[in-house]
């Protein structure tokens, strides 16, 4: 097995890419994809650490994380669809009705 630090660094990089993507992307679908990337990077961390410690915990946490992410996806996409229905455009920058 590779040293665990490799996995951890990889997942850190993936997490960073996802985080930067969230800040940059204008399309909410793309933003959400980046969020999913972040969550999956964390899943990778969990698995790697679980394997390294020889525990089942890592895999268990991943199952939880996947379930939660799935719930979040459904709700999030539902919100985006609702906006799309009324607005015909899902570019986030257009969502500026409230002074921020």
């Amino acid at each position: 097995m590779l040293p665990v630090s490799y996995y951890l660094i990889l997942s850190a990089l993936l997490f960073t890419i996802g985080a930067v993507g969230v800040l940059i992307k204008k399309n909410p679908i793309q933003t959400f994809m980046c969020i999913e990337l972040m969550l999956n990077a964390v899943n990778l961390t969990f698995i790697a650490l679980g394997r390294y410690f020889g525990q089942m915990n890592g895999q268990m946490y991943v199952i939880f994380s996947l379930a939660v992410a799935a719930a979040e996806v459904s709700v999030g996409l539902g919100i985006i669809v609702a906006i799309f229905r009324t607005r015909e455009s899902i570019v986030v920058d257009d969502a500026n009705l409230m002074k921020s």
Partner: peptide, 24 residues
């Protein structure tokens, strides 16, 4: 709707940080 979208995106973003912190 806009409030919901903003809350969702930023909230999920923060949830990612939370989860990574837990992993670390």
């Amino acid at each position: 709707e806009e409030a919901a979208l903003k809350y969702f995106l930023l909230g999920a973003f923060a949830a990612g940080f939370l989860l990574y912190g837990i992993a670390l």
